[in-house]
């Protein structure tokens, strides 16, 4: 078991107001309605995804406390879940989170070399964020796309059959997109939740 540590109180305070917009709150109500009355805690995983996306890109303690208050559960019930699942980040991340698959099938198809190449191109080690805050590189377990190995996921997008040339293009593309505005958050929320 590899529970992540909550860096309390380092990331406890954030300088943004931790509150969903009315529109998002309407969405939250709809999500809670999917579960029987009194079982609103079931909405915790989807809500943490939304909170991570909407506020900081990771879950700070006050974001988690806010979700606890929305669901009328204890903060500890949120912390213990947030520390269990690998898609919740408890530390600040870059604008783009690159998750390269490191598991067997990808590894035998050149995944390890791609991971090294990414480290070299970004000039960071796996687990780190570039100084400009654009990229965080993470190694993750099988993404369920082994037939197109090697594979990585950036934000919600899959990139498959990776080669060094492809990585060059993808990084350039992401750099360009990141200089533009962040896509409207409610769009992905409509689609995914």
């Amino acid at each position: 078991m590899l529970d992540k540590k909550i860096n309390h109180p380092l990331h406890a305070k954030t300088d943004i107001p931790v509150r969903f917009s009315e529109e998002t709150l309407e969405r939250v109500r709809k999500i809670i309605e999917r579960y029987p009355a009194g079982k609103q805690k079931s909405a915790l995983l989807p809500l943490l995804h939304m909170a991570q996306e909407e506020f900081l890109g990771y879950l700070s303690v006050d974001v988690m406390d806010y979700i606890a208050s929305l669901l009328e559960i204890q903060p500890i019930e949120v912390y213990e879940v947030a520390t269990f699942y690998s898609q919740y980040y408890l530390d600040p991340v870059g604008k783009n989170v690159i998750e390269i698959c490191r598991t067997g099938p990808c590894a035998i198809c050149g995944g390890e070399a791609i991971q090294s190449y990414l480290e070299q191109k970004l000039a960071i080690k796996t687990g780190e964020t570039t100084p400009d805050g654009l990229f965080t590189l993470k190694a993750v377990e099988c993404l369920g796309a082994c037939g197109s190995a090697p594979v990585m996921q950036v934000n919600t997008e899959f990139y498959e059959f990776l080669t060094e040339e492809k990585i060059d293009h993808i990084l350039d593309d992401l750099r360009r997109k990141s200089s533009e505005e962040k896509p409207e958050a409610s769009k992905w929320k409509e689609k995914f939740f």
């Binding site: 999917r34 995983l45 943490l48 995804h49 269990f84 690998s86 898609q87 919740y88 377990e141 099988c142």
Partner: peptide, 12 residues
């Protein structure tokens, strides 16, 4: 019948 999609968060 109601069917809902529920998202996990990365845990085999």
């Amino acid at each position: 019948l109601d069917i809902h999609v529920h998202s996990g968060a990365g845990a085999y």
